Computed example of a mutant assay.
Amino acid sequence: MSAAALTRGAGPLLGPLGKALKYASLVAACVVAILPLVTVFLASFKTQDEFRETGPLDAPESWTNLDNFVTAFTRGGMLQGFLNTTIILVVALAGTILIGTMTAYAIDRFDFRGRGLVVGAFLLATLVPAVTTQVATFQIVSGLGLFNTRWAAIVLFMGTDIISIYIFLQFMRSIPRSLDEAAMLDGANRLTIYARIVFPLLRPAIATVVIIKGIAIYNEFYLPWLYMPSRDLGVISTSLFRFKGPFGAQWEVISAGAVLVIIPTLVAFLLLQRYIYNGLVSGATK
């Protein structure tokens, strides 16, 4: 029997088998991703004795036991962490959007020497390992008097990365230059064109950058831990990390703190995930 005949004969069998293996692998991946979250969620509602005596996947005796969440908020400093995170997140995102859209507008709309070099410099900056520049960055932040203040994290997060530049540029190229020319004939200057015509049309790109960079800032640990060591300036990631001290043996309280940190990100992603996918591809296909 030839190889072609064997392939044709095995085709009907490999089809259902391949589909079954595909779905089985997807189910296994979902279990691996969800199981730790379920374990942490169940532990957050258990008492200390219940946590020691029951299995990790056993349901708590009372789903209304919110003592662990209250402890996390009051004694764990999570409320202050959420407040600091919100302030840093809002100011840094506003600065990123303003700087990023202006940069993309200048690169796309103005013809000047070295335009390609500017884009290449942004790309080159992303290729340099961040750990190699931490000494110089720390000296600059300290020299500016920003160390141990919220502005240290805000200024560092505000730096526009190549992903934001790329997203804004893709959308900018989909906006006809004829709109700029028509506005200039009516007497508008470049700043007016940017603020009243280009910026409103970049709303899909802005939404995409807000989601992507917002989640990155929300989950960041290293920069707040290094540049804001004060407990009063702790964000949610550093506040959760500090649980290892006063609550080192109270895993149910630590689980409650982890749930408090996970829920906002999870809800935001589930509600806004379509904007991530649409925003990344729509600018390149218009």
Rank of each mutant, 00 (worst) to 15 (best):
K19T: 11
V261A: 06
L144V: 07
V118Y: 05
G257A: 15
P129E: 11
V135T: 15
S44C: 07
D108E: 15
L98C: 09
Y275M: 14
L280H: 10
E181G: 04
T101H: 00
A29S: 12
V281W: 00
L21H: 04
V90D: 10
F269R: 00
A92E: 12
F221T: 04
A249T: 15
A188T: 12
I215C: 01
A10T: 11
A284D: 09
Y166I: 14
T265N: 04
F269S: 03
A104L: 01
S282E: 15
F138T: 15
G77E: 03
I254S: 04
T54Y: 11
P176T: 09
A59W: 10
A205V: 08
G245S: 11
A256Y: 02
T285G: 00
Q139Y: 05
R242A: 10
L146W: 11
P60S: 09
K286S: 14
G248S: 15
M102E: 02
A72L: 05
D58Q: 15
P176Y: 02
T238F: 02
S2Y: 06
L240M: 14
L13N: 01
I140W: 05
E252K: 03
M102F: 12
L37R: 02
E181H: 07
A33D: 02
L270V: 11
E61F: 08
I34Q: 06
F221S: 01
A4D: 13
A10H: 08
G18E: 09
E53C: 06
I162W: 06
I34K: 04
I165L: 15
F110C: 07
E252M: 06
P176V: 11
L124K: 03
V128S: 00
A130S: 14
